[in-house]
């Protein structure tokens, strides 16, 4: 019971702060919208004919993946803030297992990302993607799974840093490469072998692929089967959350 209370309150705190900070809410939504319309809209003119689909529609699953990537990573590395400004100590001396803290943080990141993903999904009619209820449910389920996976990865990253000065390093060397090597903006098959290899171990690749299955329903644009995507995401989630739990007991 103690553990459930802790998980609950860690989630409640993050959600409350997320809803309270209107500017953060806006800026997390602004990024994907800007990418979708400015990058997607601009590139459409260049590439649409060769793809058999408007480019802006092609990148929509990728933009959803991006929303989840940033939402989850930001939510998890707020742990660094908590370490720097002290609240983490209050959490760590509580009679609660480290693993519950990790689960609470991973779930709060997942829920916040899911909230953002839902809002991005609302844009789909504007860019000409019509979704049935089943597709929406499928897309949200994949979003949640992907968000949990990335949030757990974010917790692992957070255990290695003590202050927020490292923030831009995390962005430049982890988040941006993950985004570009996920097939979100362009198909990965045409990349050089080494980058293709990296994209294969990038969990976001499978998340974006699963979202393409859900939203585009066109097998020309997907690289793996749905079963493979979901399987990899579940396996990666379990591995990441275990490592995060281990690191939390050892390092913090």
């Amino acid at each position: 019971m103690a553990e459930i209370n802790a998980v609950y309150v860690l989630i409640a705190r993050d959600l409350k702060k997320f809803v309270r900070e209107k500017s953060r809410l806006l800026s997390t939504l602004a990024r994907p919208v800007i990418w979708l319309f400015l990058v997607g809209g601009g590139m459409s003119r260049l590439v649409s004919d060769s793809m058999g689909m408007p480019y802006i529609q092609f990148i929509f699953p990728g933009i959803l993946g991006m929303t989840i990537l940033f939402g989850s990573i930001f939510s998890s590395i707020s742990i660094i803030w908590d370490k720097e400004f002290g609240l983490m100590k209050e959490i760590l001396v509580a009679p609660v297992s480290r693993f519950s803290i990790v689960i609470g943080k991973a779930l709060s990141g997942s829920l916040i990302s899911l909230l953002q993903a839902t809002m991005i999904l609302l844009i789909s009619p504007i860019i000409g993607i019509d979704l049935g209820l089943q597709q929406i449910i499928y897309a949200l389920a994949v979003s949640f799974l992907l968000a949990f996976c990335i949030s757990s990865l974010g917790i692992i990253i957070a255990t290695f840093f003590e202050s927020f000065e490292s923030f831009s390093a995390i962005m430049n060397f982890i988040v941006m490469p993950m985004f570009f090597l996920s097939g979100a903006m362009y198909p990965v098959q045409k990349l050089p072998d080494i980058l293709k290899g990296v994209s294969k171990v990038n969990p976001l690749t499978y998340g974006v692929d699963a979202l393409k299955h859900a939203l585009l329903q066109d097998s020309r644009f997907t690289d793996f089967s749905i079963a493979m995507d979901i399987g990899v995401l579940i396996a990666a989630s379990i591995i990441f959350v275990s490592i995060a739990g281990y690191l939390f007991t050892k390092r913090i």
Partner: peptide, 18 residues
């Protein structure tokens, strides 16, 4: 070790749940 973005009451509620 307080959360400065929460109210006094919320900080204590957080603790009560923990």
């Amino acid at each position: 070790t307080l959360d400065k973005d929460l109210t006094a009451y919320e900080n204590l509620l957080f603790h009560a749940y923990l």
